[in-house]
Design a protein around this nucleic acid. Sequence first.
DNA 1: ATCAAACACGCAAATAATTGCAATTATGCT
DNA 2: AGCATAATTGCAATTATTTGCGTGTTTGAT
Lengths: 249, 249
Amino acid sequence: MLKKERQIEILSQLEKSKKVLSTELSLSLNVSEDTIRRDLKELANEGKLLKVHGGALTTAQKVYTFRENEIFDHDKKLLMAKKALTLIEDNDVLIIGGGTTNLELVGIFPPDLGITVFTYSIPIAMRLSDHPKIEVILFGGKLMKSAQVTVGLDMIQNISNMRADACFLSSSGIDVDTGLMEIDWEVSQLKKAIVRVCDKVVIMSTVEKIDTKQRFLVCGIDKINHLITEAESDSSLLQGFRKRGVHVL
Amino acid sequence: MLKKERQIEILSQLEKSKKVLSTELSLSLNVSEDTIRRDLKELANEGKLLKVHGGALTTAQKVYTFRENEIFDHDKKLLMAKKALTLIEDNDVLIIGGGTTNLELVGIFPPDLGITVFTYSIPIAMRLSDHPKIEVILFGGKLMKSAQVTVGLDMIQNISNMRADACFLSSSGIDVDTGLMEIDWEVSQLKKAIVRVCDKVVIMSTVEKIDTKQRFLVCGIDKINHLITEAESDSSLLQGFRKRGVHVL
DNA sequence: ATCAAACACGCAAATAATTGCAATTATGCT
DNA sequence: AGCATAATTGCAATTATTTGCGTGTTTGAT
């Protein structure tokens, strides 16, 4: 039995019973407990499970009454989130925008990730509120009910006075020539301010948003460092972005 | 049963009933009382609960916007919310604090109520986000994960520069002689600032909190205009408050 | 003040984790 | 293919964690 195979089996057992014991796994999979422990350690580092003395528990021990399965295009967004996660390092200071893709992203943050997150999205803050190591700062302002994000002039002030390692923004439209666009004026102003203070700008967009235009410009393509979609990074659709120096993944 | 598993179970029981007894836990989880005590001690060090002689209490009530029926003392709090609602008029500007009682209150706001609500509680903002006529402004700041509220110095600044018709605050302790008290320093500072800028100060407190003291003073009894409990307004327990000019209801 | 319940401390047994090391197995490269 | 290198695995010795029990102390309700 291959290592990967075994690890998948471990995860599947964990899925069923919400907990696994090192001793039991060692018997049922015919490997030493050491190996099981090494597997568990590895999986724990990937955030796939929570390693504890004697075995492991599902990370989703928490009561997520959150409607994860109601997210549109859940699979695609999860894939994008996984790609985005590779860009994040311990001790980073991030600004994370609204949208379900970002919600997906913070949902897969491994438990040992120690970062600081600034956000204006209430669902994002909520979901991070039970993460053990992440510090969350929520920007305040008037609540835009439709998207459950806050906006306000003060907020743009606040943002302008900070710096962050990276920002993760979704897009309502992106285009090789024009750049990143936004439907809502207030949100566009907000994102404009965010882009200015971040070393690394990461845009997450499903391919259907590519080459669609919206009313308000956030920034030109030259400000964007990474573009994440659900497609293969060498897709021809994305060639234009690669040519302009955007890291596509 | 694994240690972590047990601790999670303890926390989950605690969440439901707001208190746990070492003896009961020892029986229901089939471990010695020593083990329970050690668990409680450990969890207390992590700030997950407050250890007391004989068991443990919740340190701060974590609010789940979704699971209304699990709110502790739901009936009492609903009753208090109904009383509080009588104090609210159209076009009011209110500051509403955290806690499940306030959550209950905003839950029964009639759909045609047109007011402006300032809050630092994320669950409150969430719940109001689907109300058609209420404008919600969320104060920003560092997220205190246990209670899902935000705090911060900026926030006190912001509050000091506004005025509101009334504020609705829960109490972690109130006493005729001392006044309103709070467990957490940062929250106490926050409430202090709020009380200063509100024309009408409404405190909501279950009777069990009456005459209990906490570490940090928010304000004296003279600043409090209304006291809402689940008891009859002419209860003898509340006589002291009435004598000092507090409207008890 | 009294007394049972709750607690803290140390100890010992059992179980689990870690580490270094050697044997085996996979992988990449010419 | 053949070889070098890296990864994986099991083993043994050591270390750490968990747990229950005995002892003596503290607590808090009457």
